[in-house]
Structures are given as structure tokens and as C-alpha cells.
């Protein structure tokens, strides 16, 4: 029996020896030489104002060059309570997430650390996340075991409520930036108001422009030209077209325009002077259509088509442009 107990104790000792070797306290190991490890941390912007229950996340990106490699069992353990000089400081590692990218010459470790605050105080007090110590081993020499220290991040734990007579100015931390009033909503309202204003101005311009999208688009002849293009090529359509053009002349001249006061119109609206002969032709056509069926004109056999061309040329004059050359086939 005693023999059996000795044997079992020997076996247990033999098995426990390597574990104890690996469980060496990281802080007692030598530091890794410079140049083998580079670190980048993404720290929270808020450094103060934490209170019980808050979770603080910190990203650590380590690049470890060969031949060293990370001993992953040295990563901080979830649920570990941080201590300072043996005293629990009330910050616990709530979660850790580790990923690595292995390359030939180096390995990059993405370590996401989430700490949770389990302490509070009636006054603000300093605290720290970390430091964390990681073990690295030389893959070419198993005995070359070193440590790397992830620097700590200082934060401040704030009380949940101020009690007693507290002068806020005295209690303000120089690390806390001034609290600014949020104006996001006001900015949105301003944008909406500016949008409405722009739409209203466009609407006003549209109304002032006599319901047109472009300047001078709503002139009497522009309107007549649009109508004439849709007017059927029939006797009734011809009457409507002539009537529409008469209306355009009257509106342009601000008076009823007839053949006998055409010169007055042209003196007032000299833009139309290049079309004098055509306007006379138009009045001759109007005479035949509306007053004297036996009257003749020299427009041709397709007066509707000629009228569309004529309206377009009048529209050009109305816009102060050189009239579009007359299609020689118009009216034919």
C-alpha cells in the first residue's frame, strides 16, 4: 500500500512539474528586446465619468516578429479581477476576443478587451485598465521565454450622484472637455427649412415666369407654337390656329392687332420687323378663313403647316432671336 502511494505521488509530481514551469509568473520573466514587438491600441475617447456597471472596450493590435510567438495561454482570462498591490480595484475583464494573422516573418494579433466597472465612490477616483502581461517564446529556443507588457489605460471612476454642497467648478476634471449643447436636431430643422425655402423660391419663380420653366418660355407666341403643333390639320384646326395666333399678336401688342395697325405694332415691337411680309400673309390667310372665303393668299396649299413655321418664327422674334429660317416646303 505504501509502495502504491509512493508510486502515485511520484507520478503526480512528474506530471505537475511541466505545468509549474509554464505557470511561471509573467512579471518575473525578462522583457523582450526592442524591435520584436510593435503595439497599437484603440482606446475609448472617454476617460472619465465611468461608474458601476459601465463596460469599457479596448482594442490591442500586436505585431510579433519571428522567431518569437505569443504564448496564447498567457492572454488575460475572462472574469479576472484586476488588483493593485493585492487589492481588488473593482475592474473585471468581462470579455476577450482574440484573432491572429500568421505570416511568414511575423504574426499580428487582434485582441479586443472588454472591462466592466464594479466599483463606485462618493468622489471621483483614478483607476486603470491593465497593464496586461503576455508571454512570448522563441520558437528556435524553447528556453528563451520573455514577457511583453501592454501598457495600462488610466481612467476615472465617477460617483453616481453628488451629495452635499459641491461646487461644480472645483469638482470638474481638467480632462473633461466642456459639455456642448447638441444641435443635431436644430441642424436638421435648418436643412428642412432651407429646402422648403428653395422649393418656395423656385415655385415663386415659376409663377412669376408665367408658369414656365425657362425664361420667356411663356410668351404668347411660345404658347401659340406649342398649341399649333398639336392642332389637327383640318379646316376647324386651321381656324383655331389662326385664332390662337391672333390672340398672341393681341397679347404681345397689348391691343387688338389688325392689318391696318400693323405698322403701329411693328414700331412698338421692332423684334417682329423681319417678319412683316409674313405677318401680312398671315392676315391675308385670316381674311380668307374668317371673313372672306373668296379672298386669295399666297401661302400655299398647306396653310396649317405654314402657320406652325410662322408661329415658331414669331416665337424666335419674341425671344429676341434671329427667326429660324423658313422651311421652303412649309405651306406647299
Amino acid at each position: 500500500m505504501t509502495k502504491f502511494i509512493r508510486f502515485f505521488s511520484l507520478i503526480l509530481l512528474f506530471c505537475a512539474t511541466p505545468l509549474s514551469a509554464l505557470a511561471i509568473d509573467s512579471q518575473d520573466l525578462p522583457d523582450i528586446k526592442e524591435g520584436f514587438v510593435t503595439i497599437k491600441t484603440i482606446d475609448p475617447t472617454q476617460r472619465v465619468g465611468y461608474t458601476v456597471g459601465d463596460v469599457i472596450e479596448r482594442d490591442v493590435i500586436l505585431t510579433i516578429k519571428a522567431p518569437y510567438t505569443l504564448v496564447e495561454t498567457s492572454l488575460p482570462i475572462k472574469g479576472y479581477e484586476k488588483r493593485y498591490r493585492g487589492q481588488v480595484i473593482g475592474i473585471e475583464l468581462k470579455n476577450i476576443h482574440h484573432e491572429k494573422d500568421v505570416h511568414k516573418d511575423y504574426t499580428t494579433h487582434h485582441i479586443k478587451l472588454a472591462y466592466q466597472v464594479f466599483t463606485n465612490s462618493v468622489v471621483a477616483k483614478n483607476a486603470a485598465l491593465g497593464p496586461e502581461y503576455l508571454n512570448l517564446i522563441n520558437m528556435k529556443n524553447n528556453k528563451d521565454l520573455v514577457k511583453y507588457r501592454i501598457p495600462s489605460l488610466g481612467i476615472a471612476i465617477s460617483p453616481l450622484a453628488i451629495f452635499g454642497a459641491v461646487k461644480v467648478e472645483d469638482n470638474m476634471s481638467p480632462m473633461l472637455e466642456p459639455l456642448l449643447m447638441t444641435h443635431t436636431q436644430e441642424k436638421q430643422w435648418l436643412k428642412v427649412a432651407l429646402g422648403i425655402l428653395v422649393i418656395s423660391l423656385l415655385g415663386l419663380l415659376y409663377i412669376l415666369g408665367v408658369h414656365t420653366w425657362l425664361p420667356r418660355m411663356g410668351g404668347p407666341f411660345a404658347s401659340a407654337y406649342r398649341t399649333l403643333r398639336k392642332t389637327p390639320n383640318s379646316a376647324e384646326g386651321l381656324k383655331q390656329a389662326v385664332s390662337k395666333l391672333h390672340l398672341a399678336f393681341n397679347n404681345t401688342g397689348a391691343m387688338s392687332i389688325f392689318n391696318d395697325n400693323l405698322d403701329t405694332f411693328l414700331a412698338k415691337k421692332s423684334n417682329f420687323s423681319p417678319l412683316k411680309y409674313e405677318i401680312q400673309q398671315f392676315f391675308a390667310l385670316s381674311r380668307q378663313v374668317y371673313f372672306e372665303p373668296n379672298a386669295t393668299h399666297d401661302i400655299g396649299n398647306n396653310p396649317s403647316k405654314w402657320l406652325v413655321q410662322f408661329a415658331r418664327r414669331c416665337r424666335d422674334c419674341e425671344r429676341g432671336l434671329t427667326p429660324t429660317p423658313l422651311d421652303s416646303k412649309a405651306g406647299a
Binding site: 392689318n259 391696318d260 371673313f291 373668296n294
Partner: peptide, 12 residues
């Protein structure tokens, strides 16, 4: 020399 009355005739 017209066979029908025009507005111009009335104006005259």
C-alpha cells in the same frame, strides 16, 4: 375691291 366686310372696313 373686296367682296366681304373686314374689320379694317369698320375701322375706316
Amino acid at each position: 375691291n373686296r367682296t366681304a366686310v373686314l374689320p379694317d372696313d369698320i375701322h375706316a
